[in-house]
Design a protein around this nucleic acid. Structure first.
Length: 830
DNA sequence: ATAAATGTTCTTTTT
DNA sequence: GAACATTTAT
């Protein structure tokens, strides 16, 4: 390919060009002729020379304003680099500037840079910021994305090498659970004792560690259903491959397998990616680590950025060890610490640092700031009677801030668990305070959206069992368990997708006439939609599908309160499809990007979990619910002991460091857990804050005034916050408790249940997605195991003699019911 | 086959 | 207390 800038030969990369243009749908990376040299025009001479020149002659302006450490992190582009970036130290800036630097020095084409993030949001942000550097167009950065999206891209190209078709579909956790459940039931295992969820957790653990069924240990195999772990894992994978589908873990795993078994392919990618960057390295799991290591073999230009103190995803397999071992794994690594904080006041920094210092096994960083203002507020710690009062008080404070001219956009409430959000939502609704929930139940998880998507999936991906199951009988068309069971049996026996099995069944008299015609009609619809999709715009087809299937009709007739909203959501769904070229493209997008871009520009308080707050910052941050059992969460303690506690502490650290100017921590003495009220103890983390940077706030509005007593009953001794709290409360019958109950009842009467549209979509479980072309033909090539004249037994029709054979369909003359067409797997020889 | 009633379990965080 | 799942009744 012609190179307009004339430095193509310097890079010696003919491979890339052919590679990027060999055209996968959705992978058209329009080559940007002048992407790289916007900032530094290409000149003759080697890359290094140019890079050095760039550095000497007054640094390009993108380097300006970086502190020495940041600058070093940006400019050290050769060799392995670990950037330990504390909270608020300009991590993202370093990452994006580094990419800009690589491009500006002409060291690589955009398409030769692999940049990995964990969330789609982070990827999007990085793209935006790089676009800013290189003049608007980042189309060339084809390999900037999440681990998962990059893996999909690679897999679509080489799917056959791992036994998939390139059109494979991606199932989400919901689909995964259903599939597991089917397998467990098919094995005849008691799914009460051995729940699908438990198996999903095991499976997740294996995949996070890149273990295939053969590689899991005996012990782990035995850990489920008395030794069936491995078998179930094998069957699960088997089923997935029939369905031509992957789960999230498979995306990584299959690429690893691909690389291991096809060294030439790996080599191509190793050569292709001249520079690799990984964001949030502390969150990588073993599979991701192995993935990266494979790619980094023979190319040391790996830059990992992370903060061991912000590792909060241990529960989903993240290995802090990856970051702790970096120097060891990548020989000659340069480690750069970013410790200068540009975000928070010194009180906030000191509090966070003091807190996190209680953890062992850190790489150790000390954040500092140059800015100190005597006006800065200390970190506030306040107490309240119960969670309702907590919401009320925080609401009041927010209104006060608002009166003083603060923007709601600069305020956030960060909770440990999402159930805490509800209380705030209820309160803010009554106050008329704008809020937005970030990361809550998502658009694509709503029932109506999932249903609609299931229809689309059935059309586009005819092997998508999970989608099929979801909507065969939605709206109701008389296809119940009995019918479904038959379809399942056939599908399992013949190892074919459900839709195909259903098709076969319709050609026989196995089903009751009513069910048969209902099923036939659905399948015919699928057929027709599939055909029409070829010449009709996909958004139009989407509408047609929803109408003709009776799905919209179903909601129109529904008189419940949510129905209109659901219809709106469906409209929005179709509208959002417009940005995609095809229905298949849309489905892929949704399976990887479950978040909807909320582009509301309104001023609103943000409510979110601590986990989803990572990477964000706000002037004012409220941190409610600092109570033992909730935060640190009991389950983290029970399941992971000390490690769990440390992770919770890191979570607290993340929370506090989100605040730029004000951090306000709350705890309640009573909280409803499992529906019943329990008195609670202040979190131990409160005692780990440095008292000189903290201000204890007395609540004027407390129900206070009941004598001594206090908390401190708990297991770990008295807290210094015990004394600051004026109530006693170990019984459920104190006046305060009763009052709280009454207030609550009154509140509910006024607000009338929660109006909450978030919950609307979450109630029903959805099916999932699978896809592929028909795996088997409807008439089997295999010679039949039966012969004409043979006497057979059918469980429903009894004994009969075979009259004719057509593939796997037998025409049998039954003694009682006469001639019927049935499928051979439903009869046995006699 | 469906709707209503009853019982059961759980509530962390997410690509 | 709520969302589920299963059982029972129609």
């Amino acid at each position: 390919m012609a190179d307009p800038n004339g430095y193509h030969d310097d890079i010696g990369d003919t491979f890339v060009d052919g590679f990027d243009d060999d055209g996968f749908p959705g992978d058209r990376a329009p080559r940007q002729p002048a992407a790289a040299p916007v900032l530094v025009p290409p000149a003759g001479g080697g890359i290094a020379a140019r890079a050095m020149a760039a550095r000497r002659s007054n640094a390009p302006d993108y380097l300006e304003g970086l502190n020495p450490e940041q600058r070093k992190a940006v400019e050290t582009i050769e060799g392995p680099v670990l950037v330990l970036a504390g909270a608020g130290t300009g991590k993202t800036r370093v990452l994006t500037t580094r990419i800009a630097h690589i491009l500006a020095t002409g060291s690589a084409y955009p398409s030769q840079i692999l940049a990995v993030t964990f969330t789609n949001k982070a990827a999007r942000e990085m793209k935006e910021r790089i676009a800013h550097f290189i003049g608007g167009n980042v189309e060339g950065m084809a390999w900037l994305g999440t681990f998962h999206s990059i893996c999909v891209k690679i897999l679509r190209r080489h799917a056959e090498l791992v036994g998939l078709k390139s059109s494979f579909s991606i199932i989400d956790t919901d689909d995964q659970l259903r599939l597991i459940k089917q397998i467990i039931q098919a094995e005849g295992i008691d799914d009460k004792r051995w729940t699908p969820k438990a198996f999903a957790a095991l499976l997740d653990g294996w995949k996070n560690r890149a273990l295939t069924p053969k590689e899991i240990s005996e012990g782990e195999s035995r850990a489920f259903a008395g030794g069936l772990g491995r078998k179930l894992y094998e069957e699960y994978q088997d089923r997935l491959s029939i369905l031509n589908a992957c789960d999230f873990g498979d995306l990584l795993l299959h690429v690893i397998t691909l690389f291991k078994t096809n060294p030439d392919v790996l080599k191509d990618y190793q050569r292709k990616f001249r520079f690799m960057l990984v964001d949030e390295y502390q969150d990588t799991n073993i599979a991701q680590y192995l993935w990266l290591r494979l790619l980094a073999q023979g190319n040391p230009n790996v830059c990992c950025v992370g903060d061991d103190d912000q590792s909060i995803y241990g529960w989903r397999g993240a290995e802090v060890d990856n970051i702790l071992r970096f120097e060891h794994d990548f020989r000659g690594a340069v480690v750069i610490r970013l410790e200068r904080n540009y975000r928070s006041t010194s009180h906030i920094l000191a509090s966070a640092s003091h807190l996190i210092a209680h953890n062992e096994g850190r790489l150790g960083k000390t954040l500092f700031t140059d800015f100190e203002d005597p006006e800065d507020e200390k970190v506030a710690v306040a107490s309240c009677w119960d969670s309702e009062e907590e919401a009320r008080s925080i609401g009041d404070e927010i209104e006060a801030l608002q009166r003083h001219g603060h923007k709601l956009n600069d305020i956030a409430i960060l909770v440990r668990a999402s159930f805490q959000m509800r209380e705030f939502e209820d309160r803010f609704v009554t106050l008329g305070l704008n809020y937005r929930v970030i990361g809550g139940p998502r658009f694509y998880e709503r029932m109506e959206i999932r249903d609609a998507m299931a229809y689309f999936r059935c059309v586009v991906q005819p092997a998508d069992d999970l989608a099929f199951e979801r909507i065969v009988n939605t709206p109701k068309r008389g296809l119940g368990d009995a019918t479904l069971k038959l379809v399942h049996e056939l599908a399992r026996a013949e190892r074919i997708p459900l839709i195909q099995a259903a098709n076969q069944l319709c050609q026989t008299e196995e089903l009751k006439p009513k069910a048969r015609s209902a099923l036939k009609s659905v399948l015919d619809h699928f057929e027709r939609w599939r055909r029409d999709l070829e010449h009709t715009k996909h958004t139009e087809m989407a509408e047609i599908i929803l109408d003709e299937s009776g799905y919209t009709e179903m909601w129109r007739k529904d008189r419940s309160a949510e129905a209109p909203g659901r219809l709106d959501n469906l409209k929005e769904l179709i509208r959002s499809m417009d940005q995609f070229e095809s229905m298949a493209g849309f489905l892929e997008h949704v399976s990887l990007v479950m978040d909807r871009d909320s582009n509301d520009i309104n001023d609103a308080v943000s409510i979110m979990t601590l986990h989803s707050a990572k990477g964000l910052e706000f002037d004012t941050v409220f941190l409610p619910g600092w109570e033992e059992g909730l935060f640190p969460h009991q389950r983290a303690l029970d399941e992971s002991g000390r490690a769990g506690l440390e992770e919770e502490r890191r979570l607290a650290y993340v929370g506090v460091t989100r605040a730029k100017k004000r951090a306000k921590i709350w705890f309640a003495s009573n909280r409803r857990i499992h529906g019943s009220w329990q008195s609670t103890i202040p979190s131990r983390f409160l005692d780990e804050l440095p008292i000189e940077h903290v201000e204890i706030v007395e609540q004027a509005s407390n129900y206070g005034g009941y004598g001594g007593g206090g908390y401190g009953r708990g297991g770990y001794g008295a807290s210094r916050f015990d004394r600051s709290e004026p109530f006693q409360n170990s019984s459920y019958s104190t006046p305060g408790w009763q009052r709280a109950q009454k207030a609550k009842a009154a509140h509910e009467a006024i607000t009338g249940r929660s109006s909450d549209f978030r919950s609307a979509g979450t109630r029903r479980q959805g099916p999932m997605t699978i896809e592929g072309e028909l795996v088997a033909k409807s008439v089997s090539d295999m010679p039949s195991a039966y012969s004409v004249g043979e006497r057979v037994f059918h469980i429903k029709f009894g004994y009969g003699a075979i009259v004719a054979i057509e593939g796997n369909k037998l025409t049998i003359d039954f003694e009682k019911t006469g001639q019927k067409k049935v499928i051979d797997s439903f009869v046995e020889k006699h």
